[in-house]
Write a protein that binds this DNA or RNA. Structure first.
Lengths: 192, 192
DNA sequence: CAGCGTGTCTAGCAGTGCTAGGATTCGGGT
DNA sequence: ACCCGAATCCTAGCACTGCTAGACACGCTG
């Protein structure tokens, strides 16, 4: 029994290594650099080993995205609980969200623009995502008014996501970034 | 002289064929189906011909995106000039924008999520893009208040773009789409 | 100690974007 | 009318991608 347990333990550790290596590679050189050959060489195994852990490259990216959901939720939680004034909380959470996306562009892409299918089909993935979303929702709740808190939060979230993606692709001038962010916060963090 | 003119004319026509074919292929089967081999077969030429017209596949996608900018600007112009009430104009323009993105997902992707570098480096491309943006800006101007109209418009635009991309990738439930859209319009199309 | 499974690697497939080089066709000068 | 030069186009191939079949070797079980 214990020998099989050791094997499963080693296997689980290797899986974590794969995810961590893929993430580091993506964050330092972009997702284009994360090829199955490169990743296999980095973990010092052959390519087919990757496929014994994951269904394919998309599944690896999805696993990395899951890690990202956890990190983002942690960031938002820390910022929200530190803020006192409700309006200031919205601004701080928005800044933290944007900062996360700018600090880890590749990770953010895996979470929200790439890897469409996998992370949302399973059950345990939305857990960390929901945790992050809940932080946003709690921050915005005081300002939702008659609106459904979920829809209100989703709309605000879309604004953040749009600002980030359009700016990253050069569709928005980087100069006015803070002004736009403040403007978005002002539109949602008000009463009535 | 006239013989050379004919050649240039034929060459220009072939270039338009390439762009049109790439667009049709992308809209009907997605950008993954638009390979250089497939595209070359479709226009009944060999692959290298494509590279005598465009620097690479990205340049072809950029050319398709340029067409899209024109179409989108036309749509927005038509809707805006038809509306009378300013607030209703914002709602109509927002709906037209979202409808465009939903009707031509591949085209919208080429315009705003893929093909990063090329379309914004040149000079003539932002013309059609600016035309569409100007329609948005004029629609929102009555509600900008003290804010810079450009930044105000960009922020609203980001909201639309975020709603579209997050929903397309399954991050937002499709059910609440109209509610979120109305909520976004309500946040921006108000005085004070 | 023999034999069976499990796990891993080598080698290869089909496909991608892109390009070098040769063949073919066509226009212009004598 | 001829032939040469040049422009145009295609065949063939490179380096790379994600992914997989089959051979190989190791280690546990009887």
């Amino acid at each position: 029994m214990s020998i099989q347990a050791r094997r499963e333990r080693e296997r689980a550790e290797r899986e974590r290594t794969i995810i961590a290596t893929a993430r580091e590679l993506a964050e330092s050189e972009g997702w284009d650099a994360v090829t199955t050959r490169r990743l296999a060489a980095e973990i010092e195994y052959s390519q087919p080993v990757l496929y014994s852990h994951f269904k394919g490259k998309d599944a690896i990216m999805a696993a990395v995205a899951v890690e990202g959901f956890g990190d983002l939720a942690d960031d938002l939680t820390a910022v929200r609980t530190a803020a006192t004034d409700p309006r200031r909380a919205v601004a701080d959470v928005a800044m933290a969200y944007v900062a996360f996306a700018e600090r880890r562009p590749a990770l953010y892409d895996a979470m929200f623009t790439l890897a469409v299918d996998l992370p949302f089909a399973t059950q345990d993935v939305p857990v960390d995502l929901a945790r992050g979303f809940a932080q946003l929702a709690e921050t915005l709740r005081p300002f939702a008014g008659d609106n459904d808190v979920g829809a209100f939060t989703e709309t605000f979230w879309s604004g953040l996501h749009g600002l980030i993606t359009l700016m990253r692709n050069g569709r928005l001038r980087r100069a006015d970034h803070e002004r736009r962010l403040a403007l978005l916060v002002d539109r949602f963090a008000r009463l009535g």
